[in-house]
Design a protein around this nucleic acid. Structure first.
Lengths: 105, 105
DNA sequence: TTAAATTTATCGGTTATGCGATATTTATGA
DNA sequence: TCATAAATATCGCATAACCGATAAATTTAA
């Protein structure tokens, strides 16, 4: 059975939210998204998003030598995320109960 | 300042949720969406969505003569919506607090 | 040191969402 | 009845999101 929504357009938002909680690498993000949505975004999906968020100045690499690159949210990113979250909640204002009912992880 | 998400892909989902609460016409839906997201979707946006949802068998016209056409969700639509809502909540599982903080309408 | 594995990077292509413009139908009211 | 307004319908288009494939860089381990 087909679905009535495909999450298209919310990947950048979700990635920004993830990074805002704790520094994360591209791979860590892919793994978290696999859990949340059931499928792992391809590298060709996730790295362009990280690049785009970086170029917007919303996230930046945290220079822990090299290893896995980790990203953190910037102050500007935090403002943008706050505003987007506000809009998101306004758009889906009737979903409060659905979130409350859900068993949180 | 640009936004990090554009709600793209969630219009059908949102319309289905609206219709699931109470019978609504295309115009009523446009007005509700204007409130929620700040801009009113154009007719060229909303009527194709209603058509598509109808063709999927997820909503149907409720035959009150003609007047403003009203739509209601079907049992199949309710199943699809339930599943989509479950996925939605899983995807945005960390947003519970944002919804709680928000003043509800 | 070298090979394998992991992570990051890039690019083109497909897909479909939402809009603008426009036309048609239906309702309202003078 | 007729004119105006409101609601619905359709079509093509621009946009961009995401994926697949592939390659490069970095880390790990043998």
């Amino acid at each position: 059975m087909r679905s009535c929504c495909n999450m298209r357009g919310f990947l950048a938002f979700t990635v920004l939210r993830l990074v805002s909680k704790r520094g994360m690498s591209g791979e860590a993000i892919r793994k978290e998204l696999e859990i949340r949505r059931g499928s792992k975004p391809s590298p060709g999906t996730i790295y362009p998003v990280l690049k785009s968020l970086s170029e917007s100045g919303w996230i930046r690499e945290t220079g822990n030598g090299r290893k896995e690159k980790k990203y953190a949210i910037t102050p500007l990113g935090r403002r943008v995320l706050g505003e987007a979250t506000r809009k998101f909640v306004a758009m889906f204002c009737d979903m409060k109960e659905d979130f409350e009912k859900a068993r949180s992880r």
